[in-house]
């Protein structure tokens, strides 16, 4: 099992080694020790490997991930799993702002809270936050599901396109063009799927959530607004 101590080996060297992995690698379990808040750990991996990071990480950890399962045994700084394409990033503590930003696929699980702008401009990633999320989360979100077991801060889903937001707790306020919507059986299935993939299908009931999405008034041309163009 490759093990790297970041007090000894530079982040860039570890990332290089991860980038060079062939698709059929047998080195499928990686351990990274002493991250100590360093930035860009495990960015750009494209191989079906498990990476265990033992401690708190800085910015952009697991960014652009494809296929890998990355577990962070601590907190994550700004932009964890940003632009993830596939695979899993699991933060076992809290995440700072812009978690899962612009993510296109895969699953981001945050055991604690996520700060402001969680899922900003998400494009297909699924995000499961077991705690609460900060203000302006899912801003301009385009696709994917943001599932929150706790509460949501101000201006949830501002200017949202077609992503779905499921919140079990209280929503402080909804942003422009974001409304509560009735859940169809298809929506319930998607929510159940995220809960199952996040390993908590037994602990959280689909019927305890409310769903929020786009009122579709902001991004369609409307003849009454012709004066504005």
């Amino acid at each position: 099992m490759p093990t790297h101590d970041l007090n000894v080996t530079a982040v860039r060297a570890v990332n290089d080694a991860l980038h060079k992995l062939p698709p059929d690698t047998n080195e499928t379990l990686w351990q990274i020790d002493n991250p100590e808040g360093r930035h860009a750990i495990g960015v750009g991996i494209d191989a079906p490997v498990d990476v265990e990071i033992n401690g708190h990480v800085g910015y952009y950890c697991g960014g652009m991930n494809k296929q890998a399962s990355i577990r962070i045994h601590g907190n994550a700084g700004t932009g964890v799993a940003e632009n993830m394409m596939s695979g899993l990033v699991h933060v076992m503590g809290d995440a700072s702002q812009s978690a899962g930003a612009t993510g296109c696929g895969g699953l981001l699980v945050i055991d604690g809270d996520a700060a402001a702008r969680c899922g900003i401009s998400m494009k297909g990633i699924d995000i499961l936050v077991k705690g609460s999320i900060g203000a302006m989360s899912a801003f301009m979100a385009q696709a994917g599901s943001l599932v929150v077991l706790g509460n949501a801060g101000d201006a949830l889903g501002d200017s949202i396109y077609e992503a779905s937001i499921f919140v079990r707790g209280h929503v402080k306020s909804l942003g422009a063009d974001c409304i509560e919507k009735p859940m169809t059986s298809e929506d319930r299935d998607r929510l159940a799927d995220v809960l199952r993939r996040g390993g908590i299908d037994g602990e959280a009931k689909v019927e305890d959530f409310r769903m929020y999405g786009s009122a579709r008034q902001l991004y369609h041309f409307h003849v009454d607004n012709i004066e504005s163009y």
């Binding site: 100590e36 808040g37 360093r38 708190h56 800085g58 910015y59 907190n75 700084g77 700004t78 700072s96 702002q97 700060a115 402001a116 900060g134 203000a135 302006m136």
Partner: peptide, 26 residues
Amino acid sequence: PIACKPAVMAESDDYVAFGSEYRALS
């Protein structure tokens, strides 16, 4: 109110500490 600039804090029985990034607290 927008919280554009980063901030992380640590509190224990010994101290309260502030850092722009966790690296400063580590």
